Computed example of a mutant assay.
Amino acid sequence: MRQFKNPDWIADIKFEYESFEQIPSHVFDSINQDLDRVQSKEPLASIVISAWNEEVNILRTVASLSRMKTQIPFEIIVINNNSQDRTQDTIDRLHVKGLFQEKQGCGFARQMGQEQAAGKYILLADADCYYPSCWVDEMVKVLQEPGVVCVYGRYSFISEEGFPRWKLFLLEMMKDAFAEIRHIKRPYYNSFGLSMGFIREYGLKVGFVPSRWRGDDGQLCLGLMEYGKIKQVRSNKARAWTAPRTLKRTGTFSQVVKERILIEAKRFTGNFNSRMPENISMLDE
C-alpha cells in the first residue's frame, strides 16, 4: 500500500550506482532485452524524455519504461539537454532513440523530441522518475477519449530519510485535493512534464516555450486548451514516482507543507477565474 511504503517494483530497478562507470554491462543488456521487446518501429505513442546530468537516473527511468505491459506500440526518445556528465554515454548504451540539444532548457529539448517523434501521441516523462507498467495504457486511454487533446497524471514521492511514506502520502492527498480545484479553470497549473500526454499534431501547432526556465509543460497545456479538453488521469495505479529532491530544497517536511499551503492560499481565488495568464510559474514537483 502506497500509504506506508514504496512500491515493490521500484526496488528492482532502484540501482544504487553513483556514476556511469559503476554500471555493469549486464544491467544494460537486461534493460535492452526488455526495450527490444516493448518498443515498436511504428509507434502510436512516443515517450519523450529531456535529460540534463542524469547519467544514472535516466537508466532507472528507462528501465521502468522497458517493463511496460501494453498492446500500444510505442518508442522512447531521450534528449541529452547539453549534459556535463556522462548522460550521453548512458543513452548510447541503451536501445532508445537518442538526440542532443545544446540549447539549455526542457522547452528546447521537448520541442526537438516532439519534432522527431513518430507517434500520434506524445507522452512526457522525466529523467528521474519511475513509471508503473500500466502507465502507457492509462495515459493513452484517457487521451483517446473524444475531444481530449491533453492529459496529465498524478505522482508520488519515494520515501527517504526525513520523508517517511505516511507523511508523503498525506502531502499527496493535500496536493491532489488542490489539483482538483485548479482543474476546474486552470488545469495547466497541474500539467507537469513528469506525467503528461498530448496529441502531437496540436503540440506542434502550439510548440514548447523556447526558454531555459521551468513552466514549458504548463504553457503548452495552456495553448492546447484552444484545441480541446484537458483531462486528469486519476488512476492511482498509474502514478509516476519520483525522489523528494525538490522537496528537500525547501527544508524539512513541515517546512514543505507550510510553503505549499501558503502558495495555494495566495492563488486560491484565482483558481475560479478563467482569465488566462501570459506566463505560468509552476510549483516544483
Rank of each mutant, 00 (worst) to 15 (best):
L222G: 06
F4W: 12
Q255R: 12
R182S: 12
L224H: 01
V96S: 02
V206A: 01
F192I: 15
T70M: 07
L262C: 10
L170Q: 08
E54F: 09
R245Y: 13
Y227L: 02
F163C: 08
Q114W: 00
I72K: 00
F100Y: 09
F100H: 09
Y188A: 09
R214P: 08
I31T: 05
G207A: 07
E285S: 10
M196Q: 09
W241C: 07
N80H: 07
D128Q: 14
V27K: 15
I181T: 14
E145R: 05
V209G: 05
P277M: 06
F268G: 12
F15H: 02
E160K: 10
M225E: 07
W213Q: 12
V233Q: 11
E145S: 11
I31Q: 08
N271Q: 13
K237T: 14
I23L: 03
G193W: 08
L123Y: 02
Q39Y: 01
K185L: 10
A265R: 15
E115Y: 02
A11F: 06
A125G: 02
V27F: 00
E201Q: 10
S281D: 11
T61I: 04
I263D: 11
F169M: 10
V151Q: 05
R214M: 15
L171Y: 08
Q104F: 15
I76C: 06
L171G: 02
S281P: 07
E55A: 03
L59Y: 09
I158D: 07
A243S: 15
F4N: 10
I72H: 00
I122G: 07
L168W: 02
G251M: 14
K258M: 09
M68Y: 04
L170Y: 09
N190R: 00
S19L: 04
S235E: 08
E226N: 09
V140I: 11
Y130S: 00
P187K: 05
Q111K: 03
R182M: 12
A125Y: 01
A240E: 04
E75P: 05
A125W: 04
A127S: 15
Q104L: 14
N190V: 02
M112I: 01
V209R: 10
Q88V: 12
V62G: 08
P73V: 11
I77R: 03
M173V: 04
I58L: 04
Q33N: 03
D128K: 06
D137W: 03
A240T: 10
W52R: 11
E161P: 00
R214D: 12
F268L: 15
W135R: 01
R239F: 05
Y130E: 03
I199C: 01
A238N: 04
Y121H: 06
K266D: 13
S19N: 13
C129D: 10
E18G: 14
D29L: 11
T246I: 08
S254L: 14
A45P: 05
E180H: 14
L168Q: 03
K175A: 09
G98I: 01
G215M: 03
L44E: 15
E75C: 08
L220S: 05
A45K: 05
R239A: 10
Q39V: 07
K41V: 14
K231M: 07
V151D: 00
V149S: 03
R186C: 15
V48I: 14
D8T: 14
N53C: 05
G153D: 08
V48Y: 00
L171Q: 04
A109I: 03
A177C: 07
L123D: 06
K167R: 13
R86H: 13
F20M: 03
S254N: 09
L194W: 13
